[in-house]
């Protein structure tokens, strides 16, 4: 099967077109000199200018960055620990706790956290609640990437390190950590992207009065669709594009799905 047949190629090209045309349309219309996203009128950068003068949008971008950075630091730390622990020890509870949030429909996590924050912690929803929520579902993703990396490794190096008299901490710092570093970085970038992108869980756990990017976009889509949405979208695409490129450079395992 060195030359896959023509039908296969044709279908593949159609699927690639299906994947990319919508995004191209969004990008192209972000330069369209018309309030309506209907026909092409002329080239403009106005929507970008408008965007950068939109203070609420800038605050939202800042809030989203704060959330994404905090959540990915937390999730990477906890997720790496979880990935190591799950790989190394026969744990029963931790894998369930870490992987279920990944497999559940997001709305369930959103709803249960909303109820928990309000009833048990009696806290005011805001950035903190969103950070916690994002961390909760990102831990599983990081753990998966880290564990996958560990699974592909030869156990004997750890034994060798121990035999040479390294303490567990030394083994960890000098052998394990460097070896899994690409996975950790990939996990960090992944949880960052997941957090910046997440709409459903953010929707349930956000407070009012602190704009967050996906929620702003949702409101813009629902209330007033102008090419400003396209402009935000294009910029966000560039950001995630850069992050994904980085992530794939560090760890090829994320290319193989979760």
């Amino acid at each position: 099967m060195k030359h896959p047949n023509f039908v296969l190629w044709l279908m593949a090209i159609l699927v690639y077109a299906f994947l990319y045309i919508p995004l191209i349309v969004v990008v192209v219309y972000s330069f369209n000199d018309s309030r309506l996203n209907a026909e092409w009128v002329g080239f403009t950068l106005d929507w970008y200018g408008k965007l950068f003068r939109n203070e609420e949008m800038l605050i939202a971008a800042r809030n989203s960055l704060i959330i994404a950075v905090s959540a990915s630091v937390l999730a990477t730390t906890l997720g790496t620990m979880a990935g190591l622990a799950i790989h190394r020890y026969r744990l029963k509870v931790l894998p369930i706790l870490a992987f279920t949030p990944v497999a559940m429909p997001e709305i369930l996590l959103g709803v249960s956290l909303l109820l928990f924050f309000l009833q048990v912690l009696n806290m005011t929803l805001g950035l903190v609640s969103v950070i916690i929520a994002h961390t909760t579902f990102s831990i599983g993703f990081v753990a998966i990437v880290v564990r996958a990396r560990l699974q592909g490794m030869d156990e004997s190096i750890f034994e060798a390190a121990r035999d040479l008299g390294a303490t567990p901490w030394q083994t960890f710092r000098l052998v394990t950590l460097p070896l899994i570093m690409p996975a950790i970085i990939a996990g960090a970038l992944m949880s960052f992207t997941l957090s910046i992108d997440d709409f459903v869980i953010t929707f349930f756990t956000k407070g009012v009065g602190e704009p967050i990017l996906p929620i702003q976009i949702y409101t813009m889509i629902k209330i007033a669709v102008t090419p400003e949405v396209n402009a935000v979208s294009t910029l966000l695409m560039l950001l995630t594009l850069a992050l994904v490129m980085l992530a794939t450079r560090f760890d090829k395992t994320i290319l193989h799905g979760r």
Partner: peptide, 25 residues
């Protein structure tokens, strides 16, 4: 990678794109 890239753009934006493509105009 070409499969993953569009998936990395914002979830809402991917839905919104279809609002433009399928819209009445």
């Amino acid at each position: 990678l070409l499969v993953i890239l569009p998936f990395a753009s914002n979830f809402l934006i991917r839905i919104y794109a279809w609002m433009i493509i399928l819209g009445p105009e």
